[in-house]
C-alpha cells in the first residue's frame, strides 16, 4: 500500500470540566490513502465530528489533543502553531460542514469569497481567480455560474449553497476534504445529488475525503472504507462492502440491523438494548460490553485493541482474537 495521505495514531481528545476530565476520543488510529474516501459513522457523541475538528485544528476550547499524533503526508500537523495550521486549512485540507451558512460569509458575494480564497493560496491575478471561480461553480453544477457568482449566499437554495461550499472547499486544490454531515440538512432528492458531486469531483482532482456522517446509506453510496466509532473509540474499520454485508463488531451488526431498508422484510428492527454511555461513565474493558449480546468475561476487564483481521480491516473486539492471530500467521 502506498504511504497514507493522512495518518492518525492513538489520538486522544480531552475536555477538562469541573467534574473531572472527559475523554471524548480515546486512542483513535486510522489512515486515509491518497484518493481514498473514508467514511466515519457513529451516533451522536461517538466523537466523529471531534475527529474532524481535531485534524483541522478547530477543537472548541476547552477541548484539546491530549495524546497521539496526526500526520499529513508524514508531516506532523497536530503540533503546528495556529498560524501554520491556518495556512494548511483551506490550502491543503478543505472543509464542508452540515450547515452551509457556517462556511459562507453572508455579507460577501460568492465571487468575493471564492476569489479571495483562491488568491490566498495561489499567486494569480484577480481576473484569473474569477475565471477559475466561475469554472469551479460551473463544475459543481450551479446553472448560469458566470451570472450567479455575484449573488450573496442567501440568494441560493440549500442544495445550491452546499454546492457553493464544495466549490469553496475545493478552490485551493486541497489534498484532503473533510466533509462533516454534508447532506444532513438537505432533502432526500438533493442529498443524492450532493453525494454524487462530492464523490465525482474529489475523484477527478485526486483529493481524499473524510466523510463524517450518521447515515450509513450515505457511506454505502460514497465511501471506499468505513470507520465505525463508539464512545470515542474505533469499533471497526474496513472496506465498505465488507463492513456492511459482514460486520465483525457486535455494535456494527446491531447498528446495521437497526436501519430499516427499502428491500428487506422485517417485522421488528434489531434493537441494541440501552444507550451509548455518557463520557462520564464509560464502562471498564470494552466500552460496548454492557450492551453486547456476545459479551465474555474478558470484555468486562480488558479493553480490546484494534485487531487486524484482514487487508485494511481492523476490529476492536475480543471475539476476533483468533481471527487476528490467524491473519498474522497467514
Amino acid at each position: 500500500m502506498s504511504a497514507p495521505l493522512l495518518s492518525v495514531r492513538d489520538l486522544i481528545v480531552e475536555f477538562p470540566t469541573r467534574r473531572g476530565t472527559l475523554r471524548a476520543l480515546d486512542g483513535l488510529s486510522f489512515d486515509i490513502a491518497p484518493g481514498e474516501v473514508l467514511g466515519m459513522v457513529g451516533e451522536s457523541g461517538a466523537g466523529k465530528s471531534l475527529t474532524g475538528a481535531a485534524i483541522i485544528g478547530l477543537l472548541e476550547p476547552p477541548g484539546r489533543i491530549a495524546g497521539g499524533e496526526i500526520r499529513l503526508r508524514s508531516e506532523r500537523i497536530d503540533t503546528l502553531s495556529p498560524d501554520a495550521m491556518r495556512r494548511i486549512r483551506g490550502k491543503r485540507i478543505g472543509m464542508v460542514f452540515q450547515d452551509p451558512l457556517t462556511s459562507l460569509n453572508p455579507l460577501y458575494t460568492v465571487a468575493r469569497q471564492l476569489t479571495e480564497t483562491i488568491r490566498t493560496h495561489a499567486p494569480v491575478s484577480e481576473a484569473e481567480a474569477r475565471k477559475r471561480a466561475v469554472a469551479l461553480l460551473d463544475r459543481v453544477g450551479i446553472p448560469a455560474a458566470a451570472r450567479r457568482i455575484d449573488d450573496y449566499p442567501h440568494h441560493f437554495s440549500g442544495g445550491m449553497r452546499q454546492r457553493v461550499v464544495i466549490a469553496l472547499a475545493l478552490c485551493a486544490e486541497p489534498e484532503l476534504v473533510i466533509a462533516d454531515e454534508p447532506t444532513t440538512a438537505l432533502d432526500v432528492s438533493v442529498q443524492a445529488q450532493i453525494i454524487d458531486l462530492i464523490k465525482e469531483i474529489c475523484a477527478e482532482r485526486g483529493a481524499s475525503v473524510l466523510l463524517i456522517t450518521h447515515d450509513m446509506g450515505v457511506i454505502a453510496e460514497t465511501a471506499d472504507r468505513v470507520a465505525v466509532l463508539y464512545a470515542g473509540r474505533l469499533a471497526e474499520i474496513g472496506p465498505v462492502r465488507e463492513v456492511i454485508t459482514n460486520a465483525a463488531h457486535p455494535y456494527t451488526r446491531g447498528l446495521m440491523g437497526s436501519i430499516p431498508t427499502l428491500t428487506q422484510e422485517t417485522d421488528r428492527l434489531v434493537q441494541i438494548p440501552g444507550a451509548m454511555p455518557r463520557l462520564t461513565a464509560i464502562p471498564q474493558g470494552c466500552a460496548f460490553n454492557p450492551r453486547c449480546r456476545e459479551v465474555m468475561d474478558r470484555c468486562r476487564t480488558d479493553r480490546p485493541e484494534a485487531l487486524t483481521t484482514g487487508e485494511g480491516r481492523q476490529v476492536a473486539c475480543w471475539l476476533h482474537a483468533d481471527d487476528a492471530q490467524e491473519a498474522a500467521r497467514g
Partner: peptide
C-alpha cells in the same frame, strides 16, 4: 419513483438508478 431512487442503497444491490434532477 424519483424519491425512491434518491434513497441511498444500503443493500449495495447495485440497482441502476435515474439521477435525480433539480430541486424543489
Amino acid at each position: 419513483r424519483m424519491l425512491l431512487d434518491a434513497v441511498p442503497d444500503l443493500a449495495l444491490s447495485g440497482r441502476r438508478r435515474q439521477p435525480v434532477e433539480g430541486e424543489i
